[in-house]
Design a protein around this nucleic acid. Structure first.
Lengths: 213, 213
DNA sequence: TACTGAAAAGGGTTTTTTCCTGTATTAAAT
DNA sequence: ATTTAATACAGGAAAAAACCCTTTTCAGTA
């Protein structure tokens, strides 16, 4: 019987290789390739005619992270099944990736049995949603769908600079904008992300994985 | 031939279980127990007469993290061999744990062969220091040993509160100290950690693993 | 005992952040 | 064609953060 092909994209080699052992011990699957970031994954997938049955995608990675990679997959391989492997359970990050077409989102502290179930579900039924993911999706749906627009590139750039020693005036200079415009970004994000200070903003940016440190 | 006993302390069950498979594939070792935080580890080790040959200890964990756990081990089981498994390569975090008696410090993006070598070295030679760790230790030694005092509990508590929406006045209230004292902590830490703003402080605290988010 | 160093606190000032309320421009939606 | 929405920007003011420099207290120790 032919085994299902799985590709792992994760920069933590120890985790990636360990996970390979675990998955192989399940019996039905084989790890056809391991990559350390989205860039390598794209290079690999372009050079292969046989697509994997499942991609296990880490969120936090250097060079090209899970979100960017998922966006590329969504554009170029919309039918590719992808299961997100993440360390944090931040809502907006989850929503973002699911909107980009990820078939499931699991935390790294999941137990191996559940994990095996998740892989099977995605490969055979097309998706896997744990109870808490369903809850989060439901909450998201039943909200007054305003906060679901993702942040613009400029705001992401701003958020990155917020997480530093720079003053707003310096940030404005670097972004070729008026300090008053920057103040507008700030106020806008405070409201949208429900925080009351620059530190709160920085914490949100990090927790949500919107910016990498 | 009797196998060496290894205990894994890591809250990411998927990683922990995968790692178990990897280590068992090496042949010489067996995983005698897996725990998800320092608290559970202590409970376990107290109930066992046979100590493990090696403890693989994660740094970032809920309830009781790697630093706290290492401190306990240092007090109660000074001869216990511990290999730190971390995600970040922050200097002060490394120095801290090595001072507490950890026998090695490896990053989770290590490749499995190196990892196998590290385990072997710690069990048979008592320690494992990769080249870059040695470099860091050397730099640390050759510094004008002033900044090596670890931060006090009060300062750690303060750092935790810095990473929030709270104002310094509110922080002072929560810590039953005068805002002026808090201002002193702030100035002190700015100098010691070489930052110029509260955000910089928060970023440092997170990067170094001093506080968990 | 007198000295030293760290923690806690206060007075006062400057800079930065935060919060208002507005306006002009442009692009998209109705 | 007109409303709506997002972006870029301003003036002004209050709050918070950051930076001075000084004092008290207290524990360890030379």
């Amino acid at each position: 019987m032919k085994k299902f092909k799985i590709v792992i994209v994760d920069d933590h080699l120890l985790f990636s290789n360990s996970l390979k052992k675990l998955i192989e011990s399940f019996g039905d699957y084989e790890i056809s390739k391991q990559l350390v970031n989205g860039k390598d994954f794209i290079d690999y997938i372009r050079s292969e005619e046989a697509k994997p049955d499942l991609v296990l995608l880490d969120v936090q990675m250097p060079v090209m992270d899970g979100r960017e990679t998922m966006a590329w997959i969504s554009d170029h391989l919309p039918d590719q099944k992808v299961l997100i492997l993440s360390m944090n359970d931040d809502k907006s990050s989850i929503i973002q990736l699911l909107k980009l077409g990820a078939r499931g989102y699991i935390l790294k502290d999941i137990n191996p049995l559940k994990f095996k179930e998740a892989i099977g579900k995605v490969i055979h039924s097309g998706f896997y949603h744990s109870e808490w993911i369903s809850t989060i999706m439901f909450e998201e749906m039943s909200r007054d769908s305003n906060s679901d627009e993702l942040l613009s590139d400029k705001k992401i750039e701003f958020l990155n600079k917020v997480c530093s020693d720079k003053t707003y005036k310096e940030i404005a200079g670097e972004m070729f904008l008026s300090p008053k415009t920057i103040d507008g970004y700030r106020a806008n994000l405070f409201k949208k992300l429900n925080v009351k200070s620059r530190v709160g903003l920085a914490m949100y940016a990090i927790k949500s994985g919107l910016i990498k440190i």
